[in-house]
Amino acid sequence: MILSYPVRVLCLALAAGFLLHAVLMLLLRVAAPWLRRHAERMAPAGAARWVFTWRLAPLAVTALAVGGIGLPVYLRFEPFGLAERVNPGFLAAGALGAFLCAVALARWGRAAWALRRLAGECRRGGSPLAAGADNGLGAEASAGAWAVRSAAPFVVLAGLRRPRVVISTAALQRLTPAQLDMALRHEQAHRSAGDSWRRWLFLVLPDALPGVHWRGPERLWTRYSEWAADQTAVAGQPWRAVHLAEALVAVGRGTSPQAPLGAMVTGLANDGAELADRVDRLLAGQAVAAAPHCPLPRWIWPAAGALLTAAAVYVLPHATALYPLLERLVR
């Protein structure tokens, strides 16, 4: 098949991006057990950052390599405006790359629409949750929180740019002031940590292959970010841990007559193990005690820096050598 110059360049970007990203994702999956083990030794907040970083790495490296090196080299050496015959494998890789980008964009669009709708409804229907002596809420915990009428007990952080804590009237009735305070502190901790953006990015990150949605890192990140928010909310106070554990069970249960157990089942089909883990951590004092500080091995950042420098030193003078490789991919 013969492709015009601009279509070929676009196809090259997609094909090279797809192949490199797939290889990096494969490497990531191979290294995942080690990465996971290392995360287990870190404090929850650090572990959440660590998981997020390595899940983001394949896309970041791919974008840098293709956009920063591959494409400029090809544009520099490829005769401008020439139509050329391309091989079917190249076309297939380009199509797969386009498909994965389209899936990521579609997810982004759906989430943007959903978010807009949610934000609109909460903005119109939410009433500010005021701090005061009557409800025992502190100004810090209730800042920017909104209450909405619902028979289902929920406490959620909704939104991206300016996320808000939204709490249902059922949750307000079910939770004691101390439990409510802890529930709000937990969500505010998510807000301060910028977890909404990370959650969003997890959604739009492309998969390695069509139909293969690897949710392992996302689940792991969710767990560590929840643990980190628990820890921030508890702030080293044992009674706070008890109140938060009670709030978790009360909200997880959702057994008001209007919202029977199971009315709030999400797509993640939670079997309750995560909830049990969190309650155990809170009661065992793991969220109360200062978290063990287990940074990455000291050598890892100098090693990464040295590797990048070496790669740059090698690649830049030899960038011309990339062109035949790209040509082989195209033809």
């Binding site: 997810r107 989430a111 959903a114 978010l115 949610l118 929920f154 406490v155 959620v156 952080l157 909704a158 939104g159 991206l160 996320p163 529930a183 937990h186 969500e187 998510h190 977890d195 909404s196 959650r199 969003w200 997890f202 959604l203 709030a247 978790l248 909200v251 997880g252 249960r253 959702g254 157990l261 199971g262 709030m264 089942v265 999400t266 993640l268 089909a269 939670n270 079997d271 309750g272 995560e274 909830l275 969190r278």
Partner: peptide, 11 residues
Amino acid sequence: AVLATLVEAVG
């Protein structure tokens, strides 16, 4: 993606 819940719903 747009909601962080206090606790994942229990089945």
